[in-house]
């Protein structure tokens, strides 16, 4: 009976460090540990991870598991799944939490399946209710919320959405490190993984922009991009886009904001025809002010908007171009 939080490690400038979302998952674990009165342990996997484990030992935890093996030096779904399935068998946790990262999406469903369980993915809140745990997640790209309940004996698995819990809520303390040597065979790792790379140097740095005009699916056609381009020009803003616009080749990938693009925090983020799927929101919700123009009053973008205009962008944007020109004396 315990809660396990699986921390994610990333390589940055050839040294191992934490994926920032790991701390958010750990904060969730500590909060649930208090509510459920269960011991909480953190898990780190890899090779040469003693320093990372030591860092975890200064947190309020009942234990730190350091799963150390040469075959875990680089991430593979096969290696991680085997190592964590072994630990789960040994510890028999009630609940296993992960940060909902790309890497977790790659192996956590596999791990849960191996144990005959279901991972509840991309969870925004975990609540303790009579009769068990309720996990809240979003449906239809954030348009609706849903309560999920995991029944039966554990372990239950959940991955925590970016920003759902706050990393700075992680409590300090002290914990013992237990180094675990998993049983892994090279032949069991079926894929060969190359080193991470970037396509090219980014020509557009949106992270430094003070003003961003961003466009989404609502623009309908490539030829209409010129309209928002004109607005960006008169405002003196950088032009950005949600993923589908870049997928269609209407704007280059380097102008994409979101989990697979850039993370921005301008003074004003003007979202035009963007519905506000979570993959987009994680890239811009740090903006000081968010303005959204969308025809659907229920679009999730309004969840994060300070100012909202419900209307037809093809009427509002041309009018806005004129008004901005007037305001700037152009």
């Amino acid at each position: 009976m315990s809660i396990l939080v699986v921390m994610e490690v990333v390589m940055e400038q050839s040294r191992l460090t934490w994926h920032r979302m790991s701390w958010e998952a750990l904060a969730a674990g500590q909060e649930l540990g208090r509510q459920m009165d269960l011991p909480v342990a953190a898990v780190v996997l890899g090779q040469g991870i003693a320093a990372l484990a030591a860092e975890l030992s200064a947190k309020k935890l009942d234990k730190v598991y350091a799963i150390e093996h040469d075959l875990l030096a680089g991430y593979t779904a096969d290696g991680y799944t085997a190592a964590l399935a072994g630990l789960a068998a040994q510890v028999n946790p009630t609940l296993v939490l992960f940060p909902h990262t790309y890497q977790v999406r790659d192996f956590a469903p596999k791990l849960a399946t191996r144990l005959g369980k279901v991972l509840i993915s991309d969870v925004v809140r975990v609540r303790l209710e009579e009769g068990g745990l309720v996990m809240v997640r979003q449906l239809f790209q954030g348009k609706l919320n849903a309560d999920y309940r995991a029944s039966g004996a554990g372990p239950h698995f959940a991955s925590i959405q970016a920003g759902a819990y706050r990393a700075e809520m992680v409590e300090a303390g002290s914990a013992q490190v237990e180094t675990v040597t998993p049983v892994l065979e090279a032949a069991a790792i079926r894929v060969k993984v190359g080193a991470p790379f970037r396509e090219s140097q980014r020509a557009v740095d949106l992270t430094a922009a003070e003003l961003i005009v961003s466009v989404g699916r609502g623009i309908k056609e490539k030829d209409n991009i010129a309209l928002v381009e004109e607005l960006a020009r008169v405002m003196g803003a950088e032009l950005a886009a949600s993923r589908p616009i870049c997928d269609n080749g209407w704007l280059p990938m380097e102008r994409q904001v979101g989990s697979s693009g850039q993370t921005v925090s301008p003074k004003v983020y003007l979202a035009i025809g963007i519905s506000g799927a979570i993959q987009h929101l994680v890239g811009m919700k740090g903006s000081k002010a968010v303005v959204a123009i969308n025809k659907d009053a229920n679009a999730p973008i309004f969840e994060v908007a300070d100012y909202g205009i419900v209307g037809d962008l093809f009427e509002v944007v041309p009018a806005l171009i004129e008004e901005v020109k007037k305001a700037k004396g152009l």
Binding site: V118, V134, L144, A146, Y148, A150, S151, N298, E303
Partner: peptide, 11 residues
């Protein structure tokens, strides 16, 4: 099922 969807609602 060992997981059930209990309730759907507007956020």
């Amino acid at each position: 099922p060992n997981v059930s969807l209990d309730r759907v609602y507007l956020p």
